[in-house]
Amino acid sequence: MVEILEEKKGKDGRPIFVIKKSDLLEFMRQKKQEGFDHLSLITGVDRKDYMEVNYHLYSFSKNQYIVVKVTTDNLTVPSLISLWKSADWEEREQYDMLGIRFDGHPDLKRMFLPESWVGHPLRKDYDLNNVQYINMDEYGEDYATFDPGDGW
């Protein structure tokens, strides 16, 4: 049984369900059966001492929109890739930008930045003064480096 910790309305009038992280997959499966067939957006928010992940769901048939919210303090959230294929790239993007790990994602790697980039830029404690550069190795793969080296 899924326990809904809090149900409120956002400033835009969309219902927000706050649930426990362990209930996420079960809750989402229920919602998908209810007709929410469109996973629109996954947003991670860095709240400094914990991470918040918002899922925006839409139902084409019922024209309804809901937001599901979970919080995590150890940077892991279950992956929804088994329910919606669109979760794949969204989760990779959030992993890249905020470092949230999605358990069960088969190919969790960075979306925009190269694999060796240090830090996750959208975190509040990301240091912008620590300049990194990207170089290309002989196979055409990118790697991040602090030393600009040749060509820069």
Binding site: F112, L113, P114, I134, M136, D142, W152
Partner: peptide, 10 residues
Amino acid sequence: TKKMAPRLKR
């Protein structure tokens, strides 16, 4: 972008 720069150089 920094990712594009090595390719631009090439």
